[in-house]
Design a protein around this nucleic acid. Structure first.
Lengths: 147, 147
DNA sequence: CTTGACCTTCCAGTTGCTGGAAGCCTTACG
DNA sequence: CGTAAGGCTTCCAGCAACTGGAAGGTCAAG
């Protein structure tokens, strides 16, 4: 099967599939014309990748999951532990975003949003306005560079 | 003021401050020895950046906010609109993560997590197991490449 | 025989930094 | 006065996880 079909069946763009091959997650065969030739197990693997990526596992984590998947002697505890760690991360991210949401909503709520140049949002961002200590204050001095 | 002090006062790493200068968010003066020299308004600008970045605005959005901030003729509605868009994005992200959380928790819950090689998590990821249609199903065919 | 849809490779760019090397500048200590 | 530590400068490279595009080969239909 050509890459286009593999793309359709796995839900991954062809570019991404080639990229996954580049980084060694996949080694499809080649047809005589040089085209990549995907078996159904390749497609299976791609679907696995699509789903685990969409569940928030990093590519490296996917690599581990795949090797656990291929290892008939693995223990399900290993996999469960990874999923639990990921669950914790998701929980933390949700909490952060909810906090963020609170601050943004506060800003939006306090801004009259008309043609006047006066704007509480900018005042807040600039640190000018007397803000009541919101939960976001605690995070104020955390580096914004954690992406 | 040297970059180290500006870093301390703004909460941004020196590297990040230089980077912001590189991309034109800032133009501090230079001392005779070639060191960057930050005024208190530069620091103000840096704090503004730190806070708006930590609120989830992209660097380009920060650039817009800064130009709105400097524009005495701007209307607060412009700023409010940006904040509202951002709020919507945050809401969407939270919803996605909560959905994700549900799937992960379902997986963790169903995995016995012992020494047996049998693992419902991997089965689910591979599409093998008969899963009940969860909310994540709907997102199954969305590209995972939106990061 | 040509058109258009696929496929190939390779190179570059995205976002927002971060790390490191090589080399000045400044300050404190002995 | 020398030197060592720390801060500052520049530039180059790299991270994740792709994505876009150019230049060109291949294939099926009309």
């Amino acid at each position: 099967m050509n890459i286009g079909d593999a793309s359709d069946r796995s839900g991954l763009p062809a570019k991404t599939i080639r990229y996954y091959e580049d980084i060694g997650l996949l080694k499809p065969g080649r047809a005589e014309n040089g085209y990549r030739d995907y078996s159904s197990s390749d497609v299976h693997r791609l679907k696995f990748l699509q789903r685990s990526r969409s569940l928030g596992f990093s590519v490296e984590e996917c690599r581990q999951l795949l090797s656990l998947y291929g290892d008939t002697a693995r223990e399900s505890a290993d996999v469960k532990a990874m999923a639990e760690v990921k669950l914790g991360e998701v929980d933390r991210k949700i909490a952060e975003l909810i906090e963020l949401r609170g601050v943004l909503q506060h800003l939006v709520h306090n801004c009259h949003g008309d043609a006047r140049p006066d704007c509480p949002i900018l005042d807040d961002l600039s640190g000018k306005a007397p803000r009541d200590p919101s939960p976001a204050e605690a995070a104020e001095h955390s580096s914004p560079s954690k992406h």
